[in-house]
Design a protein around this nucleic acid. Structure first.
Length: 406
DNA sequence: TCTGGGGTCCTAGGACCC
DNA sequence: TCTGGGGTCCTAGGACCC
């Protein structure tokens, strides 16, 4: 199983699952109850490389491939079996064999007439299963499937449906459209349509769909770039130390900006939140003047809003926080990369900032992520264990703008 | 299930306008 | 404005996924 670096299980092998290891189980519990389980840190860079190779192989067969997650993709095979004078099952088997041969990993493959049924089919037999669900066989599969196991139906919807007497996927599929219109929201209505054998959920990036595959672990990314970049972290013990919380936010902003720059993007909106001990969220948003990927500019935008939130918090006795996070939204390509900036931006200053961040990014690659950071992030890094408090042998220079440099 | 982190999409209702 | 009706846009937050 993996997740050793985080303290909870990220992914577990079939053997570990067999023993009783589940996702998000605390590592200390695994150690105690199943000492024979091998615990590894997650290696997302490696998984990402494998995922890219997986997409590449599937693309050799299908014209349309959606990179759904770090370990799954959807592929549109429409028409391909006929064109090759074979069956969809044989075609799927060929792709699966090629994946296993090239990557030396196990793959589960499902074939269906739309994404929903293909997803069900791909999970039907694991690991290295291959399941074909023709339109005529859909009801037989759905009859055995608890509604809560369907892709897109979570706890809340399961509860809602259970009150309406729906227990299996087939119970839902058997309803008529008038009933669906009355009791279901759009996502659920789409699932219903796919249960009828219709093709409703497009592959992202266009096309149609026929095959889903999945395997144990593995990093993907949308072709059209992310819609948001988030950073969050839980800390313990819980706290209501303002400086500490601000430092967490600063740290996350820096981190997210680094990611942003590595993708050549800038953000024009930022949201942040504090999560209380009781799992309640306090959220706020700010606009970033002149879309930016510079942490100090984004922090400047957040600061007054944070201040406002803090005024409220001050009056709440005994409220403690367990996590903080930020989210960069409204992302777009960095214009400064292609021209000299907007009419009203200050081009000289902007270039200077770009140069500064190129240097920061270079240092991060060379010496590690947080070799240079904003002074406001210092406390978060310290608590992180990434960094010890300054000692006699360390040097800490206070540099304007950058903060502390060690 | 005492509960991690990084994402996406949908929707109710407020703000604003005519 | 002792005051109707309807449209669009935006945002906060819910729900879900891996």
């Amino acid at each position: 199983m993996t997740g050793g670096e985080r303290g909870i299980v990220t992914a577990a092998s079939p053997e570990a699952k067999e023993l009783g290891v589940t996702r998000s189980m605390p590592i200390f519990q695994v150690r105690k109850r199943y000492p024979q389980v091998i615990i590894l840190p997650s290696d997302y860079r490696m998984y990402t490389q494998y995922a890219q190779r997986m997409y590449g192989i599937v693309r050799r067969y299908a014209r349309e491939v959606e990179e759904y997650s770090i370990d799954e993709c959807f592929a549109d095979l429409t028409g391909l079996a006929e064109a090759r004078g074979t069956t969809y099952e044989a075609l799927a088997r060929e792709i699966q064999a090629e994946l296993m041969r090239s990557l030396d990993l196990s793959f589960s493959v499902g074939v269906g007439v739309n994404k929903c049924t293909a997803k069900i089919a791909s999970k039907w037999k694991k690991p290295h299963g291959l399941t074909v669900m023709p339109r005529s066989a859909i009801p037989a599969f759905l009859a055995e499937l608890p509604i809560g196991k369907v892709w897109g139906i979570g706890r809340a919807t399961t509860m809602h449906l259970s009150k309406l007497g729906i227990a299996t996927a087939l119970d839902l599929a058997r309803k008529d459209r008038a009933w669906v219109a009355e009791h279901c929201d759009r996502p659920l209505a789409e699932i219903y349509e796919e249960f009828q054998g219709n093709f409703v959920k497009e592959l992202s990036g266009g096309g149609g769909g026929d095959l889903a595959s999945g395997w144990g672990i593995a990093g993907g990314g949308r072709a059209d770039g992310p819609a948001s970049i988030q950073r969050t972290r839980t800390f313990h013990p819980v706290t209501r130390d303002r400086a500490f919380l601000w430092s967490q936010i600063s740290y996350h902003v820096e981190d997210a900006c680094m990611r942003l720059r590595s993708k050549g993007l800038v953000a024009s909106q930022v949201g942040f939140f504090l999560k209380t001990q009781e799992f309640e969220y306090l959220r706020a948003e700010a606009m970033i003047p002149d879309s930016s990927a510079a942490p100090h500019e984004i922090l400047r935008a957040i600061e007054p809003v944070f201040e406002e939130m803090w005024e409220k918090i001050k009056s709440w006795e005994g409220v403690l926080f367990r996590a903080a996070g930020i989210s960069l939204r409204s992302l777009s390509g960095d214009q400064a990369k292609t021209n000299t900036g907007t009419l009203f931006a200050a081009p000289v200053k902007h270039r200077a900032a770009t140069k500064l961040h190129q240097t920061v990014d270079k240092l991060a690659r060379k010496f590690g992520k947080h070799s240079v950071f904003l002074g406001s992030s210092f406390r978060a890094l310290k608590s992180d264990g990434d960094l010890d408090a300054p000692t006699g042998t360390d040097r800490a220079l206070d540099v304007i703008c950058l903060g502390e440099v060690r």
